[in-house]
Deep mutational scan, measured.
Amino acid sequence: MDETGKELVLALYDYQEKSPREVTMKKGDILTLLNSTNKDWWKVEVKITVNGKTYERQGFVPAAYVKKL
């Protein structure tokens, strides 16, 4: 869990989004888990830094590609 009590997951593999509802992740990324009720796709939040500014983006990743921490 992070400092706000949200559950975290670890990306076990790289994943490139294939639709606007998904998010890209790299092996080793730590993501915030938002919803894991679907056994195949989990909703996560990723933080992306571009030119020194951090953005948060929500989307789905394959559940088999992440592990709860």
Rank of each mutant, 00 (worst) to 15 (best):
S19E: 08
G28A: 02
Y13W: 11
Y15N: 01
E3C: 12
K26Q: 10
D14V: 01
K43I: 14
L33C: 06
D2M: 08
V44K: 00
P20M: 10
D2G: 13
R21V: 11
M1S: 14
L10C: 08
K68F: 08
E45C: 10
G52P: 02
V46S: 12
K68G: 05
L31G: 07
Y13D: 08
K26E: 05
G52R: 05
P62R: 02
G5E: 14
I30Y: 05
W42M: 03
Q16T: 15
L34M: 07
K26I: 08
G59E: 01
L34D: 01
A64W: 08
E17W: 05
K47F: 11
D2F: 04
V46K: 15
A63Y: 02
V66M: 05
L12N: 02
L8V: 08
L8C: 10
V61N: 00
T32S: 09
Q16S: 11
I30R: 05
S19G: 11
W42H: 02
T49D: 10
T49A: 09
I48M: 10
V66G: 01
F60D: 04
L69A: 05
K43Y: 15
K47P: 13
L33A: 02
G5I: 14
K68Q: 08
L33Y: 01
T4K: 13
Y15K: 00
R57F: 04
D2A: 09
G59D: 00
D2L: 09
P20S: 12
T54S: 13
S36L: 04
D14I: 02
K67N: 05
K67P: 01
G52W: 05
S36D: 15
K18T: 12
I48Q: 08
F60K: 02
K43H: 09
E17T: 07
T24V: 02
K67Q: 14
V9M: 03
R21H: 14
K27P: 02
M25H: 00
S19L: 08
F60S: 03
G28T: 01
K47I: 13
L12A: 03
L10P: 00
K27I: 05
D14H: 05
E7Q: 14
L12V: 07
N38D: 15
V46G: 09
L34S: 02
V50W: 08
K67C: 13
E17R: 13
L33T: 01
Y15I: 01
E7W: 11
T4R: 09
V46C: 09
D40R: 12
L69I: 15
I30E: 03
Q58P: 05
V46H: 13
N51F: 09
K67E: 14
K6R: 14
N38P: 04
T24R: 05
Y13C: 12
V44W: 00
T24Y: 03
M25R: 00
V50H: 09
R57A: 05
A63S: 14
Y13V: 12
V9I: 07
E22N: 04
K53F: 14
L8N: 05
N35K: 06
K47A: 09
L69M: 09
G28D: 05
I30T: 05
T37I: 08
V50K: 10
L8W: 13
E22R: 04
K18R: 15
V66E: 00
L69F: 08
E17Y: 04
R21G: 15
E56G: 13
V46T: 15
Y13H: 11
Y15A: 01
P20N: 10
E56V: 15
R57I: 07
D2V: 10
N51R: 09
I48N: 07
T32F: 09
V46P: 02
T49Q: 13
M1Y: 09
V23W: 03
Y13S: 08
W41N: 02
N51I: 06
K53N: 14
